[in-house]
Design a protein around this nucleic acid. Sequence first.
DNA 1: CTGAAAGCGCTTACAG
DNA 2: CTGAAAGCGCTTACAG
Lengths: 351, 351
Amino acid sequence: MSPILIYNESIDQNFHESGESVVTIKDIAQMAGVSFTTVSKALNGEPGVRAETRNKIIAIANKLNYVPNLAARRLVDRKSDSIGLIWPNKSGLFLYHLFEQFQIQAEKAGYSVMVALGNPAAGVRTFMKHFVDTIVVWPTAENTSPEFIRTRESFQGTMLMFNSSPSPYYHTISIDRQEAIQQAVDHLSGLGHRKISFIGYNSEKITGFDRAGQLLQLEDHPDRLIFTPKNAPESWNRVADMLRKTKSQRPTALIVDSYIAMFKLLKLCRMCNVRIPEDLSLIAYDDVPELEEMTDIVVTTVGPNVEHLASAALDILTGHGHPAEGGYRHVKVASQLAVRGTTRPVSDYAM
Amino acid sequence: MSPILIYNESIDQNFHESGESVVTIKDIAQMAGVSFTTVSKALNGEPGVRAETRNKIIAIANKLNYVPNLAARRLVDRKSDSIGLIWPNKSGLFLYHLFEQFQIQAEKAGYSVMVALGNPAAGVRTFMKHFVDTIVVWPTAENTSPEFIRTRESFQGTMLMFNSSPSPYYHTISIDRQEAIQQAVDHLSGLGHRKISFIGYNSEKITGFDRAGQLLQLEDHPDRLIFTPKNAPESWNRVADMLRKTKSQRPTALIVDSYIAMFKLLKLCRMCNVRIPEDLSLIAYDDVPELEEMTDIVVTTVGPNVEHLASAALDILTGHGHPAEGGYRHVKVASQLAVRGTTRPVSDYAM
DNA sequence: CTGAAAGCGCTTACAG
DNA sequence: CTGAAAGCGCTTACAG
């Protein structure tokens, strides 16, 4: 691969004249004929400064265009109303949307939000360096690593972990994936489907599928569960095999694990000339907005709503209804079924 | 509130009467049996510390999970070695990948990277509060606003603007979109295509298309340029009309503006029973990695490579070959054509 | 190679 | 009401 192709480079010799504010409280103190202690108090609205003195000081500060040095201030009182989000590499679209939502809501609540990309442990360290006092994490393999845990322990602020079981060390928000899949199955069952397939590998979701299947006494069939682990593309051959079966042989509805799996499935369907939803109903886990413009059909989905997740997190962090004690809170967020274009009554598939 | 109790047996409780204070260079100094001056030098890679001493100090720092206090460092006026990325809402996948690449390379170069989501002006303010001394921006309507410009002017650090014309106030990296589209046309022309369509709305790209068309004396035809502005979905009807024409009437190759447009086009192709690349060649602008798993075919693309963009930015910021004067640099990055599955010789389309 | 000391600009007890 | 002093954690001359 060729190196960076820079074919036109120029140097701008104009210097940016920085109007550096060298004005400190000491300068103001001298001009006002008071001590810089008094200046500090006056400017910070502390009590115990005569109004006359205070006004004089403020006037001078304005005149000199005084800008407080935040580094100095922060060195003394280490506070910041900012929230840090840990964003591991390759986290995909769902996290992208969740964090976008989170920031919109956090901004409204008066927080500034920063995101640390890359290695989560490094991210926590970055936030510590920058005085971010609240950190929000979405778990991945990387941030359950010993390194991350060690780093997390040295963090003095508040932490909120999404999608985690309750912990004595941080707030948690969990998602009931099992219940989500059960909702999906319920919906399909309500439409008369008895022969349903689940394609995926997440154990919580599979458990939900199994449980719902038993409760509703769904039909047991060879394609009931097609296990497609992350690094086994060949497992998708089984999906293709299923799609090639005759209408009476194959299931009438599918549930897929993720939107990635959904794309693979849609590809295979096209290859096998199976139309969705004309030949087969489909529900996908995870609701990612831009998918609509990428797929031919608007897919029925189930999963946690990013706005709900974000506001649940913010509620905890802003301490809404927070027990005064200051213990950590553990909230479970329910999923939502968004019925759209890809689920039809089983009667539509009658032979 | 119940704090996170760090209990590390190797820490002598003498230094930490509360058992949870933040570790400073003084703590490390005491453990290492040296002065904190030496610790500072050792940790900052300053010369004049015996290797043995340095290693010992570094080992202790790691063990204690030492995080330097940026406020203190910044007070004595030193760089914070962190770069802030401004990430406006709805910026889409390309920026997502560019920033991911940027952070990977920046981390290798020893910087910590933070991203500010949401309003760009607020982002700059956040970064100022947190001692970030370098800010990287991708232009949008929001960050050419007067508010942003005002905020930018009060920022004392270095700024790098992607996709901007040279400026006396910051570094810039521009992308030659015009040339990118010319590359695409050249490639198609080389395959014998004379009847090519451009679908999109970006004026630079259209200019590139027009220019290349004139240079190569391509055929002029009714579907040469289909202008599809952002808020005019009806403009896509013209694309559908084109696809419904007979093989001899319609163009043999298409170039689309963006991956969003690509998805729309692929949908329409399916509806109109036009196969790509069996019936029509296609080149899309912008190379976004995950597209591969979402489309049936692997699309030939043209556009700036995120790795190149990221490393060009980093080169500037790390001052590789930087003139000592401190002027701003302005670099133009070329695009790359990634020939993949969707461009065929025009002879394949012979009637 | 190592360390004592000054000091960055500010806040906050504490004493007048 | 006002101010002298201590100190936040760090870097950087400077002296040993």
